[in-house]
């Protein structure tokens, strides 16, 4: 199974090609910390998006806070434009249960009322627990629930997917 994971950088190019025809001047790309931000940064460049890039740390919106507490490294969310009436492209690295995306949408609505939100993920690994599906997925596969797909970034910016 590990050998079958595709190259992350190829997947991002593929994702950008799929998103490009749907992009409008009103589209605002928002990456979810940490892996989603890496993917969003790449998409932002490949799609020549003129709007600034938004980042979201969903730690304050997690549904498991009372069980596991606050993530030790919370990063500030940074949404530099008014969300009111925007078309948001929400970007994450891996879609699993869908709980992160739910938390991210809850947070976005506390900043304003967007016109639409679409979801782009590098990998949809299955195991969804909520009615949340990606609008764009670089790769789709089924991974057993006891395994995790991780995106890591080297100092030179190279992204790698690993299965553990």
């Amino acid at each position: 199974m590990p050998a079958s994971l595709p190259d992350a950088n190829t997947l991002i190019t593929r994702l950008a090609d799929a998103i490009a025809p749907t992009l409008t001047p009103n589209t605002f790309i928002v990456g979810i910390h940490t892996g989603g931000v890496w993917v969003a940064e790449r998409l932002h460049v490949l799609l020549r998006c003129t709007q600034p890039l938004g980042t979201l740390d969903i730690s304050f919106y997690r549904d498991d806070f009372s069980r596991i507490g606050l993530h030790p490294q919370v990063k500030p969310s940074n949404l530099p434009v008014d969300l009111e009436g925007r078309d948001i492209l929400l970007v994450d690295d891996v879609l699993h249960s869908g709980r992160t995306v739910r938390a991210a949408m809850n947070e976005l609505f506390d900043y304003g009322r967007p016109a639409s939100i679409r979801l782009a993920v590098l990998v949809d690994r299955g195991g969804h627990e909520l009615p949340i599906r990606p609008d764009f997925a670089g790769h789709t596969l089924t991974v057993p629930s006891n395994q995790n797909i991780n995106l890591s970034r080297l100092d030179d910016g190279h992204l790698t997917l690993t299965l553990a």
């Binding site: 740390d57 304050f60 806070f65 606050l70 919370v74 990063k75 500030p76 809850n106 506390d110 900043y111």
Partner: peptide
Amino acid sequence: TAESFMDVGEREVKKVPL
């Protein structure tokens, strides 16, 4: 952690559901 709470007071909804 306080640093990341700084912007909550400036948002449309000045609350997080924590």
